[in-house]
Write a protein that binds this DNA or RNA. Structure first.
Lengths: 209, 209
DNA sequence: ATGTCGATATATCGGTCCGATATGTCGGCA
DNA sequence: TGCCGACATATCGGACCGATATATCGACAT
């Protein structure tokens, strides 16, 4: 599930672990903070599976030569450049030499597609869908639509189960649990409406933003 | 985090693992399905810590004596009784003899209070709060209020971080990610309003349902 | 009787993820 | 010079999950 996120980011540019983590934590809002304890093992798994490869190894002492396409801590240099304008400009925060920059491989591209479509009926399905949505632009339109509709069906089913469960037990719940369940039901309803909007946009094919 | 739920249920009545699982999965709606793979280890941990104790051991062949307070698979017998009315009534689904019924101890009660108030700043904080809310009726009112207010503060902070993050990166997000983040922001706002309602009710001390 | 099926019930295994922690490099500053 | 904070990789223990194994029991058909 984390593999999906890593592959999705590497699809756009080569990155090293630390930068990957920063993007993951800041990109998906203030929630779902990816930790190093899962990121590095996931990278190792992906490398073992041949889905990514290390582009720049550890020690590379003679790198007076301009570091090539590899963007290093590029985003920081880009975003924060304005704030550090007083510095002598020749200071893209010179990275430590012990970094490992990863690139996605063809196997990785295939795995990415596979993960994007994987049925994951479980509790972490919510997190998984969030991740999938963040990268579904790489999907052909009809598969994207399928993804949305499967998600919608899952939420509708969940809602139905919750409703029957409530009807049979409402009087036995204290007010806090009742409020909790009601709020959860409302949230699910809003999630479904949101998906309906996404699906409608998708059907009339395009981005009428 | 699962310990909290187990202790909360055992606080009300003695239960065995299977029944515990059923209540957990059906009680907290159709989401957050607790699995045996976490339930039984959690029970073992709690027993090792002296927070629960096994009340009825495995084999108990001579139980022609009416099984006492222990409600066995009581909920099923209760709810499904109507559907099995054709049966000769003398059939509370006679349980297998290999069950282990657990009861909460004094140490368990203390642990329960402790877990209810524990600060858990992390990603699973959402699940944890849901669980806490489901059992917060056991808390004295002022602590319950504190629980709500800490949660509210956390959400407000999360919202603020999300907003600044959005402002600095909105133009670089594709429409799906934008929609995702917007929807997440709205959901968090609604969560805060919901908490405000709970807090208001709590402050004027009582259940004006 | 026998056999199979589904519900009940406990338990373990492998794997993923997380938080905490260790280790080390580097630039800035007192 | 020495220290601090940001950068960067990595490991460890623990919690949780999904899948699976095992066994008992009642129901129902053969």
């Amino acid at each position: 599930m984390l593999e999906l996120a890593i592959l999705g980011l590497l699809k756009e540019q080569e990155l090293h672990g630390y930068e990957l983590k920063k993007r993951l934590t800041e990109a998906l809002g203030a929630f779902s903070s990816v930790s190093f304890g899962s990121l590095y093992p996931a990278l190792a798994r992906l490398e073992a599976a041949g889905a990514v490869r290390a582009v720049v190894a550890a020690a590379d002492p003679g790198d007076d030569a301009p570091p090539p396409a590899v963007p290093m801590t590029g985003s920081i240099a880009g975003e924060a450049a304005a704030f550090r304008a007083r510095r002598p400009a020749t200071r893209p925060p010179r990275p430590s030499r012990t970094r490992k920059v990863y690139a996605i491989t063809d196997r990785g591209e295939a795995l990415f597609e596979e993960l994007l479509e994987a049925e994951s009926v479980s509790a972490d399905d919510d997190r998984a869908f969030t991740l999938k949505l963040a990268f579904c632009r790489h999907l052909p339109p009809e598969r994207r639509l399928g993804l949305f509709e499967r998600r919608r069906a899952l939420l509708v089913e969940r809602l139905a189960k919750a409703r029957t469960s409530i009807r049979s037990r409402k009087e036995r719940m204290d007010m806090y649990t009742q409020s909790l369940v009601d709020h959860g039901t409302e949230s699910t309803e809003r999630d479904i409406s949101w998906l309906d909007r996404l699906i409608a946009i998708e059907r009339q094919g395009g981005d009428p933003s």
